[in-house]
Amino acid sequence: MKEILKLGGILMLVTAIAGAALSMVNVITKPKIEEQKRLVTQRALVAALPTADPDSIEAVTQNDQLEYYIGYATAAKKKIVGYAFIAKKYGYSSEIETMVGVDTTGKIIGLKVIDHKETPGLGTKIEEIRYGESSPYFQDQFINRTIDNIALDKDNGEIKSITGATVSSRAMTESIVEGFKRLEQKLDGFKKPITTQEQVN
């Protein structure tokens, strides 16, 4: 009994020191990691809204909650070229987060996966770029689609799911549809010519 307490005590001491050391490292690296995350979002926005001026993209918030992003043709922010939203849904082993850009008529013009921790070799194929190609083949299927024809082949749609990664494919597809619907609601529908800035704030 005494020995167990002694051994347990030593282990506790070791883990306490380790924990203290890690919290110190965390203090230093946390702002850096957050900065990197911001850069990832920035790059995803540029990929999702290829027609927008990168400096013009601004976030629209409501009650401190991010709703969507707006991209303008120029930094002067006169003409809206599209919107971007973050689609999220739990896949096989993680939440798959995708930045999706649509133009003012409701057509997807770009997308980029921001974060996921799916199974390497299977679920990670949502981001896989085939040899000799320049963009991920799974994500390319979404380009130029509107909300009406985004569905996986297994759900009688046109988007080809990834072999061995149906769950990840479906999660990403459904998250985009859901995000799309939310955006449509917020904007009060597409196809209305939106040229002024009034709905921004």
């Binding site: 050391a21 890690l22 490292v25 690296t29 946390k30 850096k32 990691i33 900065e35 990197q36 990832v40």
Partner: peptide
């Protein structure tokens, strides 16, 4: 502990 340090530092400085 050291692996976590490497992981954090790498995430912050070599993403």
């Amino acid at each position: 502990t050291f692996v976590t340090i490497v992981d954090l530092v790498m995430a912050g400085f070599a993403p």
